[in-house]
């Protein structure tokens, strides 16, 4: 349970962090809270040569009100979001409170969760449902990637080795918007077996429903979302059919669990 040896550096700003990552030829890993990377290091599943600690970079720790959206710095912790409800985005506090355990939430960050891209993690799913946009800092400046396209496969994102997540822009849903978030965990705080997030925004006329905790990135159930927006509900058969298309590897029990998570997210909204 002791990690293999690695070197460690703590850059002062984003530029310095990117430079360090670029100079390491893919042998470096950025670390923020380290709540996902730490266990992998201790188990020696991950053996980077260098850790670039971005957790003290002030510009990554800001939460800003941009009028129609909240901009959340990559190194904002789950606990910060849990403790401070952001008007218009109350779902964030609801979700943050349910990420792992308080001792983990105090250090784990939103950007770290996105970059780590565990398919069972809360933020990749919820930020996709909220139609958030991820700002990525790289050698050629910043670029923006939609949260629902950020993760390309389990533990794989669009990030290059010399890029880091800078912030996430979460649009404030319109007045009267409703949301639902449900996850099945065998034990409180463990990674869920099934999860679903729904946003119904009549003012903007958008309905977004995603199934998470699959073996792949969160999957959009657009047809189901549309039915829920129009009729207030969707049949289990319809949800099961959508999941069969989007996650064909699921066995009957696994699919049933996911159908139920989607139904409960809908009921909650």
């Amino acid at each position: 349970m002791k990690p293999a040896a690695f070197d460690y550096m703590r850059p002062r700003d984003v530029g310095e962090a990117l430079k360090a990552l670029r100079g390491a030829n893919g042998e470096a890993k950025p670390i923020a809270g380290g709540q996902s990377l730490g266990p992998m290091l201790n188990l020696r599943l991950a053996r980077p040569k260098l850790l670039v600690d971005v957790s003290r970079i002030d510009s990554l720790k800001e939460i800003k009100d941009e009028g129609d959206a909240w901009r959340i710095g990559a190194c904002v912790t789950h606990a910060q979001l849990e403790d401070k409800a952001l008007p218009g985005c109350e779902l964030l506090a609801h979700v943050a409170r349910r990420v792992a355990y308080r001792a983990v939430r105090n250090r784990g960050t939103v950007g770290g969760s996105l970059a780590h891209a565990d398919p069972a993690a809360d933020w990749p799913l919820v930020l996709a449902a909220l139609d958030a946009v991820v700002r990525v800092a790289g050698p050629a400046g910043s670029r923006e990637v939609r949260a629902d396209a950020f993760m390309t496969a389990a533990f794989t994102t669009v990030l290059a080795d010399d890029e880091i997540v800078e912030s996430v822009r979460v649009p404030k849903p319109g007045a009267g918007a409703r949301w639902g978030y449900y996850k099945f965990c065998r034990k409180t705080g463990e990674f869920p077996e099934a999860a679903a997030a729904l946003l119904l925004d009549p003012e903007r006329r958008t309905a977004r429903l995603f199934a998470g905790a699959l073996d792949r990135p969160p999957q959009p159930l657009d047809g189901v979302a549309r039915a829920v927006a129009q009729e207030g509900t969707a049949s289990a058969d319809m949800i099961a059919a959508a999941l069969a298309r989007l996650a064909p590897g699921l066995g009957p029990a696994a699919r049933k669990l996911r159908v139920t998570a989607v139904q409960r997210a809908i009921l909650q909204s």
Partner: peptide, 26 residues
């Protein structure tokens, strides 16, 4: 809790955006 569970009474609407989910299928 942040919102009352009243799914049945929520207003109905037709979403403008309809991204065909098949297109994004892996």
């Amino acid at each position: 809790v942040a919102q009352a569970p009243t799914a049945s009474s929520a207003p109905r609407f037709t979403p403008v955006e309809d991204r065909a989910e098949e297109k994004r299928q892996s």
